[in-house]
Structures are given as C-alpha cells and as structure tokens.
Amino acid sequence: MRIRIRFSKHGKVRFTSHRDVARIFQRVLRRAGLPVAYSQGFSPRPKIAFGLALSTGHESEAEYLDIDLDPERTDGLEMGDLPARLSNELPEGMAVTAAVVIDRRTASLQQAVTSCTWQIDVVDTDANTVAGAVARALAAETLVVTRERKGREVTDDLRPGVLSLDVEGPVEAEEDEGSRVRLVAELATKPRALRVSELLGALDPPLIEHRVLRLHQWTTNETDARQRSNPLNAAASALVGAT
C-alpha cells in the first residue's frame, strides 16, 4: 500500500537540506509507529520516495513524499488521522497538510511534476527596477546563461522554462533592511528543473533573493496538457479511476 503526503517547511527549519529532511522523516515515521515497508537485503531501508529537492534555505507550502506501507500491518490505519499524527512528531516549522492512498502504478513524483510556482522576495531594489527586469525577460526570445557543468561550459536558454513571471509589489521590510519586492513565478521542471537562483541571475539587472517559498508543484494531465493539477489530486483521481 502506497500513500502520498504533502508537507510544509517554514522558519528556522528551512535551513535543513534535502538529505536532512529525508533523515528527519525516517525518524518521524518510526516515532509515529507507521508500518513502513523496508527494503530487503543487507541494509534494509525504509521505502520512501521524495519529489524534487527543495534548495536549502527555501520554504515551501507544497512538498510531497510517497511512503510504502507493509500491507500486513495497515489494519486500522486511519488516513484522516495521519496528518496530525505525523505533524505531532515533526520539528517546529514542518507540518503534514494532506495524505492520500495512491495506486502503486501512479507515476513517481520525480516523473509526474512538470512545474512549480514560486513566491520570490528580492531585496535591495525597488518595484520599478524589478518590473523593468521582468518585462525585459518576458519580452526576450531567449534568456541564455552559461554555466559550468562537469568542468565544461554549457549554455542554456532559460526562457522556455519561465512559464509565468509576475511582479506582485513591494513587501514591508524591517527598518534597517533594504526594500523588498515580491515576485510570483511558475518555472518548468522538465527537461530539467529551472532554479530560482538561476532565473534571478539571468535577469537584467540580476536580482538578489531574500526569501523564497514554493507555493505549488504541478502535474500535467497526460491526455490534456492544458489541465494541470497538484500531485495529490492527480494521484487520488487516478486511484478512483483504477478501482
């Protein structure tokens, strides 16, 4: 039996890495007494699968995790209690916000997610500068960056990965800190995940990130590319279809 959960990550705990979060969940699942299935072999590992890594320092409303449960021990498992049961064991700043049973044939999170929506606060700038940078980027045919990969210079066009980019306006800041402006962007994850820092660096002028929050991860309906959904709804409806 496979379940998919959504969780959030806010505040101090945002400085934990993707690997840290994996370790945290392994322990949280044990503490919560969930009947997690283990791999066979010399070093048994819990069968859990994460989606796209969240950069260390970024916050999120929409992280996902697939967990395989041992079918022989799932009697009496109340899916409705699961978010509270797991949130109870998570560190401050992390909470499970939803949980559903999914079909084992459901595409993995890595495969299914095609884009993410980000809320990006940039700092030491003003709304006009940001608006100009965004307008130039959206009007451009290409947004070419060169980066080093395995010791070789690679050029990439980021423009196709920028599905939307909007300026939301100034954000209130502390007295002694520079002014902040909020952007909302939908960035593609296929063929590779476009990172927020790459986008900001490619703008003219480049912008400096202050706080970044992942708002959504999106999957695309296989038959209708215009219909997008979040990984929970997509998986749950697939399950309904299958049974």
């Binding site: 101090k12 400085f15 934990t16 890495s17 560190p91 800190e177």
Partner: peptide, 24 residues
Amino acid sequence: LWPRLENLLPQVQKPARYIGCEQG
C-alpha cells in the same frame, strides 16, 4: 539574535548547525 542571524545563514556551509530545533 535570530533576525540578524537568518540573513547570514544563506551564506555559510551547513546552516542547519545553527538553528537548534532538535527533538528534545
């Protein structure tokens, strides 16, 4: 000191060392 620290942590290696929040 957290409000001042959190602006520095994105610039350092392994920032999770400085956040506390451990169970216990």
